[in-house]
Amino acid sequence: MALFIRDPEVDALAEEVRRLTKARTKTEAVRSALKAQLAEARRAQPLRKRLARSKALADAMGRGDPDFDMKAFTDSLWGDA
């Protein structure tokens, strides 16, 4: 899906971000700026809302296996070391 910048001010801002961040393209600069803005917006959400999202993700994974032995599993990753 394409994003066309038709506003000269937005185009100038994208070019300035590209130049200052040494991004190869405006697309790369816009991607980086949007990711940074999204991360900031997520951090600005109340802790309760962020924790609720994390809890929902954990709940979607289902219950853990109470018989799972993490020590044995970790040891098996080391092999015969």
Results as ranks from 00 to 15, higher is better:
residue 1 M to D: 14
residue 1 M to Q: 14
residue 1 M to A: 14
residue 2 A to M: 08
residue 2 A to T: 11
residue 3 L to N: 07
residue 3 L to A: 04
residue 4 F to W: 08
residue 5 I to C: 06
residue 7 D to Q: 13
residue 8 P to S: 04
residue 11 D to Q: 11
residue 11 D to K: 14
residue 12 A to E: 09
residue 13 L to K: 08
residue 14 A to M: 04
residue 15 E to Q: 13
residue 15 E to P: 03
residue 16 E to M: 02
residue 16 E to G: 02
residue 18 R to E: 04
residue 18 R to C: 13
residue 19 R to F: 11
residue 19 R to N: 03
residue 21 T to G: 03
residue 21 T to I: 04
residue 22 K to Q: 12
residue 23 A to L: 00
residue 24 R to E: 07
residue 26 K to T: 00
residue 26 K to Q: 00
residue 27 T to N: 06
residue 29 A to P: 00
residue 33 A to Y: 07
residue 36 A to V: 02
residue 36 A to S: 06
residue 37 Q to V: 10
residue 37 Q to A: 15
residue 38 L to M: 13
residue 38 L to I: 04
residue 39 A to V: 01
residue 40 E to R: 15
residue 42 R to E: 04
residue 42 R to W: 06
residue 43 R to T: 01
residue 43 R to K: 14
residue 43 R to W: 07
residue 43 R to Y: 03
residue 43 R to D: 03
residue 44 A to Q: 00
residue 44 A to D: 00
residue 44 A to P: 00
residue 45 Q to S: 01
residue 45 Q to D: 05
residue 46 P to T: 00
residue 47 L to R: 12
residue 47 L to D: 02
residue 48 R to F: 02
residue 49 K to W: 10
residue 49 K to D: 15
residue 49 K to R: 09
residue 51 L to I: 03
residue 51 L to H: 05
residue 52 A to K: 07
residue 52 A to N: 03
residue 53 R to D: 08
residue 53 R to M: 08
residue 53 R to G: 05
residue 54 S to F: 10
residue 54 S to H: 12
residue 57 L to A: 15
residue 57 L to W: 11
residue 58 A to R: 13
residue 59 D to Y: 10
residue 59 D to H: 14
residue 59 D to W: 11
residue 60 A to S: 08
residue 60 A to C: 05
residue 60 A to E: 12
residue 61 M to S: 05
residue 61 M to D: 09
residue 61 M to Q: 14
residue 61 M to N: 05
residue 64 G to I: 06
residue 64 G to E: 11
residue 64 G to R: 08
residue 66 P to M: 02
residue 67 D to E: 14
residue 67 D to Y: 10
residue 67 D to T: 11
residue 68 F to E: 02
residue 69 D to A: 03
residue 69 D to Q: 07
residue 71 K to M: 09
residue 71 K to T: 07
residue 73 F to E: 09
residue 74 T to E: 15
residue 78 W to I: 07
residue 79 G to W: 02
residue 79 G to M: 01
residue 79 G to Q: 02
residue 80 D to S: 14
residue 81 A to S: 06
